[in-house]
Design a protein around this nucleic acid. Sequence first.
DNA 1: GCCTTATTGACACTGAGTGCCACCCGGGCA
DNA 2: TGCCCGGGTGGCACTCAGTGTCAATAAGGC
Lengths: 198, 198
Amino acid sequence: MSLWSRTRNAVHGEITRTAMELFLTRGFDATTIDEIAAAAGISRRSFFRYFGTKEDVVLGDLIARGEEIRQALEARPDGEEPWTALCNALHSVKDTAYDDDTMLAIFRMVHGTPSLRARSIEKHLQWQALLTPEVRRRLGADPADPFDVRADALVATVITCLDVAGEAWTRGDGAVSLEDLFDAAAAAVRPPGSRAVP
Amino acid sequence: MSLWSRTRNAVHGEITRTAMELFLTRGFDATTIDEIAAAAGISRRSFFRYFGTKEDVVLGDLIARGEEIRQALEARPDGEEPWTALCNALHSVKDTAYDDDTMLAIFRMVHGTPSLRARSIEKHLQWQALLTPEVRRRLGADPADPFDVRADALVATVITCLDVAGEAWTRGDGAVSLEDLFDAAAAAVRPPGSRAVP
DNA sequence: GCCTTATTGACACTGAGTGCCACCCGGGCA
DNA sequence: TGCCCGGGTGGCACTCAGTGTCAATAAGGC
């Protein structure tokens, strides 16, 4: 890793820390980019050289997380059913950057701020695009057939279950683990013992 | 209906027509609110008295559509399985305001414009909040239990299937009907013959 | 020490959205 | 007829996100 990218990462991290602290105390909408820039000791213009939007400070690493999930999915054995493989892939990825309480606060902020919520869902749509090809392959579907929606439906549903679990997690103050809630959501959609389309 | 609400509806419709024509020819982002206001013969300020955001011109009636779906769901027989009832409720609601070609263009615009896409998903989240209570009732779930995610998962998944179908519909230029694509997506998630959790 | 290159900060600008206030128009009232 | 009153309207100014431009500057190679 070059000096250039090291300093860039350092600045990136510094902005993230500073901004997240402001967000969690004052609220997301009540924090302007000028305030973040001032607190981080950079210019407003430089902020936008590190983050495309204000939302990206909070949701920036969701893209990277999507890539991790893709790799986890491809690592699942070929014999596994697509649905099971997807669930397992999602299980294998955890967020380690924050402790549980901070995580809860962030989730609440994301769910309570429309612009953040929307961006978060956009990122999830990007996950779908990332995961669908592998599921198509496992289903033996024609990669180019626009009318074979099976893979898209499976991927979108699994991610939706994760969303539902996340919302229930915040509603319940984190008393039940995100993993358990996800499993419950997945089980409700596709009852265990149900069989795939031949 | 009073004179007041009639004139208000007329202005509302006039703005919608004018704006949609601009959107579909120039593109959504390339059309400013000043241009819409000028073309509709009102002031920029008045535009915001009829629509909260630019996106609402395109997606405004999605809230009403959600209410229709809720009523359709409540009209389904009590004995019907929640999943089936949801699918049937969604089937019973159609958009009649535009012809198929215009509908396709609008879909494409929504899917191709990030801000529109995000808002559209937000509206779908509102649908979820609208439909979940009835599904909870049908499942015999405690309305206040934050950890019973079954209803949320079912509702969110059905709407996700509609989203997937919509995207496939635009990708395939509308060659296969939205209804059929929705059925295919729903079938992929919950294979026919699968049984609900007891 | 000089030249090249990339990062930065400053400034200006667009465009969405909001608050404020004066204006106008129609209805009610004396 | 003249006055008042209330709601819709337009105009203005403002905030804030996001983008383009350009000069200054600092770092690295020669």
